[in-house]
């Protein structure tokens, strides 16, 4: 999207020429129609007018009241509400409102459950022995904290100057495998929340060791 405005230089020049003289004998350089700027709700991502159909109307309203008080009046003032009912019968309207409230409660409960699950999920940093003196570190469970594993692996690889990759473990779940014994460093990074590795409560992080044979080290 960032490069959208980048146009070929000749056209920009032509457009400037047009603006300067306002009438050109040859066919004027056609300007692209500017896009309509649509303001989306930051809470439910819908255009503002559709918040009422979303599952977070109360929060949407609060957000709008804070950010754009003028627009809030436009959408939620008394007369706006009256006008909105339009051709719909009163009965249908109340039903709609009820449905929305129900939907909202449901969504809230769902969000709560998701948050709880997130807080309960564990991140394990596992040191796995490869040979006698060499180890790899497997980090598992980061995706529950909405961390992009690929990006995290890249960051770790850069940080430790070693290989780091996203692989599926025996259970078929994704985990990051970093070469070398970096468990303590990873723990510190998670504690500080460097780069993309943020938002993990440190209490949920575990360091475990996985030994190949019984008597090692």
């Amino acid at each position: 999207m960032g490069k959208k405005r980048a146009q070929s230089p000749p056209r920009t020049a032509a457009a400037e020429g047009e603006a300067g003289s306002s009438s050109q004998p040859a066919e004027p350089a056609k300007e692209p129609t500017p896009p309509v700027q649509v303001l989306y709700c930051q809470v439910c991502s819908f255009p503002l007018e559709y918040c009422e159909f979303g599952s977070s109307l109360t929060r949407c309203k609060e957000w709008l009241k804070e950010e754009h008080p003028d627009l809030y009046d436009k959408f939620y003032s008394e007369e706006a509400l009256q006008a909105k009912i339009g051709t719909l019968s009163l009965e249908a309207q109340t039903k709609l409102e009820k449905d929305t409230a129900k939907k909202e409660a449901k969504a809230e409960a769902k969000a709560d459950a998701a948050l709880k699950k997130k807080m309960a999920s564990q991140v394990t940093i596992k040191r796995i022995e490869r040979t006698k003196r060499k180890h790899v570190t497997a980090i598992h469970g980061l995706e529950a904290f909405s961390i992009d594993l690929k990006k995290a692996a890249k960051q770790l690889a850069g940080r430790f100057a070693t290989g780091a990759s996203v692989t599926k473990n025996a259970q078929g779940l994704d985990e990051i495998v970093v070469q070398g014994d970096v468990a303590d460093e990873v723990y510190e990074i998670l504690e500080k929340g460097e780069g993309v590795l943020k938002g993990v409560p440190i209490a949920n992080v575990d360091i475990v060791e996985d030994k190949k044979k019984k008597a090692t080290e």
């Binding site: 129609t33 896009p35 309509v36 649509v38 255009p47 559709y50 159909f53 909105k84 009912i85 339009g86 051709t87 719909l88 249908a92 709609l96 449905d99």
Partner: peptide
């Protein structure tokens, strides 16, 4: 949303929005 004129439009009544969504 950015270029609404590119397609012909039809409009549904308020009661239908819920189902469309």
């Amino acid at each position: 949303h950015k270029y609404p004129y590119i397609l012909p439009k039809v409009q549904v009544d308020r009661g239908a929005i819920r189902f469309l969504l």
